Computed example of a mutant assay.
Amino acid sequence: MFNNFVRGAVLAAVGAISLTLSSPVKADLVITSVNGNGSFDYNVLFKDVYTNVAPGGEILGYGNGANGPQLITFTSGDILSTGPQGQAVIQAGTTGGGVFDDLSFAASGAATGFTSLLFNIRTDTATQVQFSGFVDALAGSSETLFNLTNGSNFFLVTATNNQLIRSGTFTAIGGNFDSIEQIRLDAAAIAPAVPEPSTWAMMILGFAGVGFIAYRRRSYGTTLRIV
């Protein structure tokens, strides 16, 4: 009878775990069309000028200048370039026939994810933009379609319920983007910088020196000297 009780308890526990894992989780990701810039922790800037980046190539964005932390990586199926060093402007490359109809981003470097992001999408011939965003693994994705107008089109992407935005994609509908720029974000967590190998070497030598001095002092303290 005891064995039957144990077997029943195990089966009940397994069933509860299976139910938990199979239950869908709502993707709490909100994207809205806004009028202005707002206030954010970081303005995304480029440390280097990128020219005619091949499809799938990476464009690295930094927070508040070249000396700031690397936070976000951009990729595309198109050939892309960036504007002059400084403010982030992503546009079609000169060798890609003017095609710019998708842009993906992902948290990278020091950022584990984002709580909010702002993008300004300027249209060339596209009439709409579809945004697909991914938050924490169990929360899945969300898709939203917006109309585009001439000039600036600011979009604010926000995660709720303590979730983090991990990645996302903008896809042009009916044509191409002219540029995506004025990218700003709030990073959820900034990882501490990893010391350079030379720094590690100096630290190890320092610890070894402190240990050696302590050892010598202890040795002198226990030595019997006869005068």
Rank of each mutant, 00 (worst) to 15 (best):
F2Y: 10
F2D: 15
N3C: 06
N3F: 12
N4G: 11
F5P: 10
V6I: 14
V6S: 11
V6H: 06
G8F: 02
A12H: 08
V14K: 14
S23Y: 12
P24T: 09
A27W: 04
V30G: 05
I31Y: 03
N37T: 00
N37C: 04
S39A: 05
D41S: 00
L45D: 03
I59P: 00
G63R: 08
G65T: 01
L71S: 12
I72L: 15
F74D: 06
S76D: 12
L80C: 11
G83L: 02
G83Y: 02
P84Y: 03
I90D: 01
I90G: 04
Q91I: 07
T94S: 15
T94M: 15
G97T: 08
F100N: 12
D102K: 00
D102N: 07
L103K: 04
G109C: 07
F114I: 08
N120L: 08
A126F: 01
T127F: 00
Q130F: 01
Q130R: 06
Q130L: 09
A137H: 02
L138N: 13
G140W: 10
G140I: 06
S141V: 00
E143F: 11
L145N: 03
T149M: 02
G151S: 01
F154L: 10
L156S: 13
L156G: 08
A159D: 07
A159R: 02
T160M: 10
T160K: 11
N161E: 13
L164N: 08
I165E: 04
G168D: 09
G168H: 02
A172L: 03
A172Y: 00
F177E: 09
I183Q: 10
I183E: 14
A187Y: 09
A189N: 12
A191Q: 07
V194I: 12
S198H: 02
A201F: 02
M202T: 11
I204T: 11
I204Y: 06
L205I: 11
G206T: 12
V210I: 13
R217V: 15
R218K: 12
G221I: 09
T223I: 13
